[in-house]
Design a protein around this nucleic acid. Sequence first.
DNA 1: ACATGAGTTGGGAACGTTCCCAATTCGGTG
DNA 2: CACCGAATTGGGAACGTTCCCAACTCATGT
Lengths: 337, 337
Amino acid sequence: MTGNRRPTIKTVAARAGVGRTTVSRVVNGSELVSADARERVLAAIKELNYVPNSVARGLVTNRTNAVALVIPESESRLGSEPFFAALIRGVSGALAESRTQLQLMLVRDQAERDQLTESVATRRVDGVLLVSVHSEDRLPGMLEEMGLPTVLAGRRDAGERLSYVNSDNAGGAAAAVRHLLGGGRRRVATITGPLDMDVGRSRLAGWHAAHREAGVPASELLVEAGDFTEEGGANAMRLLLERAPDLDAVFAASDLMAVGALAELRRQKRQVPKDVAVVGFEDSVLARHTDPPLTTVRQPVEELGRTMARILTGITQHGAPRQQLTLPTELVVRQSS
Amino acid sequence: MTGNRRPTIKTVAARAGVGRTTVSRVVNGSELVSADARERVLAAIKELNYVPNSVARGLVTNRTNAVALVIPESESRLGSEPFFAALIRGVSGALAESRTQLQLMLVRDQAERDQLTESVATRRVDGVLLVSVHSEDRLPGMLEEMGLPTVLAGRRDAGERLSYVNSDNAGGAAAAVRHLLGGGRRRVATITGPLDMDVGRSRLAGWHAAHREAGVPASELLVEAGDFTEEGGANAMRLLLERAPDLDAVFAASDLMAVGALAELRRQKRQVPKDVAVVGFEDSVLARHTDPPLTTVRQPVEELGRTMARILTGITQHGAPRQQLTLPTELVVRQSS
DNA sequence: ACATGAGTTGGGAACGTTCCCAATTCGGTG
DNA sequence: CACCGAATTGGGAACGTTCCCAACTCATGT
């Protein structure tokens, strides 16, 4: 029941009969310590239950061993969560390896997003992971200007200059549409993601590419923009059916939108896959539970998070250069096509 | 293109022609500053784009304005994610109000969990939010002993001494079973959660209570333990059907287990709800997408997170006393019952 | 004219660490 | 036996802030 305060490096030094610096060296694994001194210091640390104060350390080293993961909350609404959950798992796993803390920042609106620069400027984190960047988003540039290493989940456009990890969106989309055309479908519609995001544009580009490749004309009537939400998917499906009642397949740029599309098709008594085949994108948990189970493009979300984190710690801890990576996707065929 | 380093409080003081202390006072909103001085300081801050260094501040105040949310990853596997996603949203929202940062710690195994005390001892956080605490878990007690305010999501047992926020598990479960019995079902089985957790025991207690209340004998043959996973739910359902082929309803202690049960029932050609009624617990996104849509007990997960965060900041920022809260649940009837 | 006291103000010290650099020790070598 | 260099060691300063307290300014009252 001693009212002792937490031991500091001085306490340990006194107990071990050495100087502050020697303790610091032992704690930080320096070689310049005699075996004898090291032993005494380690014993003292154990006895006193000493843990270095990371705040004090951060003050002098100017490093916090923490990175921020910034997620716009608007996108995480409505059950798009599987993506973020998997991403977080990946990020967290990789960070644990390098003993780095994860600061989670859910950003509600643009105002909060602007404010974030200030918050980040207080130097609480060594770097930033950014998700869901829209083309015109100025945040990533500002962060980099402030000298804060930044890694994006998905590039802003084809000429992105910052580090990023991307899925092979165009390739995956093309594979999906190729699969539909190869199965004899001739009127393959698409519900796109937001077209102010590279991920939306790239998946649409894949749809175009597969048509070109197969020599099937791609009518603009068969393209409708969605917003990655279930409701948006249902809406887009309804518009598509009005405009092109003869469509026989639809490629939705996300599983969640595909779920919305399935619901709308059911309402309109179109059978899946008999009348209309449906393919999604992501292979989230959802895809296995739809009726019928959803054919989709698997995106290695957890690995994406892991890779982002590794690249970021590479930069912050070892001064690694910028890196841009694209991870492969894979078509998973189930019963909806 | 000036190679200027980040401005410190001294830079600002010099620019405004005042002392360090005055700047500090302005920044921290003290009243003891003349209007004149305040104005000059604010101008200097704006000109220099000064942001106080929170690490240095933390060193002297011994506060970080950050709290940790600890989530055992084992439980978050397999798509139980909706719960954690909603929880995080709630926590994050409430923390934003009090300008507190959120440190996310996914803990993979018991070893990492033990290590966590050390990590937390480095004083990077002012308090801890703990999820999924098993009865014998010593972590909460250790944290509290270290003087780190702790709030649990769900108590460890009925005699819990720490702060917690709980759902009305027994009440919700009783409502679910009452609904089944009231609908004429006579052999209502239950797939429980882990019985080394209060949440598992309480929901089972609700099942018992409803039977007692209705004067229907509760046979132990109708009870099978699950682990909150889909697979576990399917397994338990299979065992229950072997043991009690005449069951006509099942109450699963989580939506995810209910989904597993639905799958198993389909495999065994039992119609839902005609042959067997199914009720889950949580009302996650999943529940609306099962076939048929799942009757379930809604648990205010986001509010639970919000409340936990508010209680914790109440303790860390205003020295509020311990608090224990139970949030109401609500039966949501859909087509599975 | 002077004491009083409220309102302001700013310098010194402290928080717990790391880093720089000078001092000390010690085994060998000429 | 004096000298050298490598190995080891530890004290001072610095990181950027807050808090304590002493000092200063001025209007007021006597």
